[in-house]
């Protein structure tokens, strides 16, 4: 069973622990500038939104890569960049409609979320449950439950 990163921006406080954890997991350094997940702050609306790759089934980045450096991890469904194959041409960064695959000047390769091999560090680090790692077929289950709870109340009345 594959799982998906599920993001609930309402719960995000903008603390950036996800960015730190991501960078530590992938580079061994606490360095949000090298994180594959990014929290955006919309100041005048008071909104914070974590954003990262949603692992498209028919992935633009994977299809665009001229050297087949992006492949599917069968265990997790993650579209994974193989650094030893990637030539840093950045075509995938142009192809991705969401901007979630990006070039890394330090390595000369592109980087994107790889779900940390099935135990995403961002979800583990998130203190508020804004980022969770849930059944890929049921990412809407919490929202469904919330609506279901309301429906139930209405019937009871």
């Amino acid at each position: 069973m594959w799982k998906s990163l599920h993001i609930d921006p309402k719960k995000c406080t903008g603390c950036l622990q996800c960015e730190m954890a991501c960078s530590v997991e992938h580079t061994g350094v606490i360095n949000p500038s090298k994180s594959r997940i990014k929290v955006f702050s919309f100041e005048t609306e008071g909104r914070k939104v974590p954003y990262t790759c949603t692992q498209c089934t028919d992935a633009w980045c994977l299809n665009a890569c001229p050297v087949d450096a992006i492949r599917i991890d069968a265990a997790t469904g993650a579209k994974q960049v193989f650094d030893d194959v990637c030539v840093g041409c950045k075509v995938c960064t142009i192809a991705c409609p969401f901007g979630t695959v990006n070039y890394n000047q330090d390595t000369g390769k592109v980087q994107k979320c790889d779900l940390c091999g099935g135990d995403p560090a961002c979800a583990t680090a998130c203190p508020t449950g804004a980022i969770t790692y849930v059944d890929a077929d049921w990412t809407g289950i919490d929202r469904m439950r919330a609506w279901a709870a309301k429906a139930n109340t209405a019937v009871a009345e």
């Binding site: 406080t13 903008g14 603390c15 950036l16 622990q17 730190m20 008071g46 909104r47 914070k48 203190p127 508020t128």
Partner: peptide, 11 residues
């Protein structure tokens, strides 16, 4: 809403 500073669990 509430908001956190860098790295803060309290917010």
């Amino acid at each position: 809403t509430n908001a956190a500073c860098f790295g803060c669990t309290i917010a």
